[in-house]
Amino acid sequence: MTTDLVLFWVPALVALIATLMVITRKNASRALIYLVVSLLAVAVIFFVLGAPFAAALEVVVYAGAIVVLFLFVVMMLNLGRSSVLRETRWLQPGMWAFPFILVFVLAIVMFNVFAGSGDETKGQEVGPKAVGAELFGPYLLAVELAGFLLLAALVGAYHLGRRYLEERREEAG
């Protein structure tokens, strides 16, 4: 029991600290590296909770694909030393006060709600086979809808990423 709690809380603390670093950094690429640490720590939590397939997907898709996409955009935007200075100007310490109050109130409510559920996780591993059988059985429609969503995102990203929007605006103006 104690070992279980240690196995859960060590990656959980790593995730929490890394996430705190993500939202407070001024340099975008450093924040992204902390985001990778946070996502890997959450993947460890998934693994110890008995969801190895979700853990693998977390590493491959979140840390592998989504964060790399962020890094590509950071490279394209060519953020330099001036962006860190601008970030320092934008991020006054006083700006955290109001969000912190809101989040604190929400935290009190959420913790009170969750405190009631005293049950434990089953401690039984749900492997990829069970997930796949369920995914392509009762959840088949959801898979197809996710496919539609990804296709729409592909078209939208292609459209937004093209340069012609900018050129047409120059012609008009």
């Binding site: 110890v48 909770l49 008995g50 401690g123 591993e125």
Partner: peptide
Amino acid sequence: MAISVPVEHVLYVA
């Protein structure tokens, strides 16, 4: 391998 922890701890972290 899977561990058994109170669900509320996981929900607190989330």
